[in-house]
């Protein structure tokens, strides 16, 4: 299980998050909901060990990512806010590079790359340099990079942003398949339809605090709203 408890982080006078606590386990999909600047990305950056919180603690299957970053990071696959691909490398080279950094070599790495390419249907672009890729191709490559080593947990920062309907469907099926195979998935999103179709649970962040953590149905019932979107608006105090 990955859990965060009582996270606080400020940048000068700006308080990014003041009380963030939630968690997710293997075999479930949790959606992190919140408006722009609510603290989603800061929470994810802390969870992945990139940013040190002012207060609070993070546990990645019992490991502290700040005291034991190497072992904690081995369990994670992260799709960051911005893909950050290397324009002069091919997709295969991307996967090889990140596989190597995860300690994979030889046949194990080759099998992992083949599996990732099949899952993401990237056969047509595998040997192309990523310079000039469409948004969909960029997302696929960044996802492949995050999952090539078969992590226990996937953390995705707005993965469906900018994707067309077909690509969103493809991604949804992929995440469901990964969940069914036992991967724990946390994703942040603004698209409520995606969240209601995918998430087992939702964690709502507003003003730097987690104000709800329950199943979509329970959230709708609790707020007396008709849809998840309405329930979210009520929870963050905009309705």
């Amino acid at each position: 299980m990955i859990s965060v408890h009582g996270l606080k982080k400020s940048f000068g006078d700006l308080i990014a998050i003041s009380d963030v606590s939630f968690g997710f386990d293997k075999g479930e999909i949790v959606a992190l909901l919140g408006g722009n600047g609510s603290g989603k990305s800061t929470s994810i950056n802390i969870m992945t060990g990139l940013m040190i919180p002012d207060e609070g603690h993070v546990s990645v299957q019992g490991l502290d990512p700040f005291k034991n970053p190497i072992d904690a990071k081995k369990k994670l696959g992260v799709f960051p806010d911005k893909a950050g691909l290397y324009p002069n490398l091919t997709v295969r080279e991307h996967l090889q590079f990140f596989g190597h950094l995860q300690g994979m070599t030889g046949k194990t790495l080759k099998t992992a790359i083949d599996r990732t390419v099949r899952m993401l249907e990237m056969e047509d672009i595998i040997d192309r340099r990523t310079k000039g890729f469409s948004h969909g191709q960029t997302v696929k490559t960044a996802l492949g990079r995050a999952m090539v080593h078969g992590p226990d947990y996937l953390i995705l920062d707005e993965p469906t942003r900018g994707l067309d309907v077909y690509a969103v469907r493809q991604l949804r099926h992929l995440l469901m398949r990964l969940r069914d195979n036992g991967t724990g998935i946390l994703f942040s999103s603004h698209v409520m339809q995606e969240v209601s179709l995918l998430a087992n649970r939702v964690a709502v962040i507003a003003d730097g605090k987690v104000c709800a953590e329950e199943t979509p149905d329970a959230l709708i019932a609790e707020t007396g709203a008709d849809t998840l979107e309405d329930a979210f608006m009520i929870k963050v105090g905009l309705k």
Binding site: L50, V78, D81
Partner: peptide, 12 residues
């Protein structure tokens, strides 16, 4: 190009 992030997320 945000290319440093993905490397920093690796166990190295």
């Amino acid at each position: 190009r945000n290319g440093l992030f993905p490397i920093l997320l690796q166990p190295i």
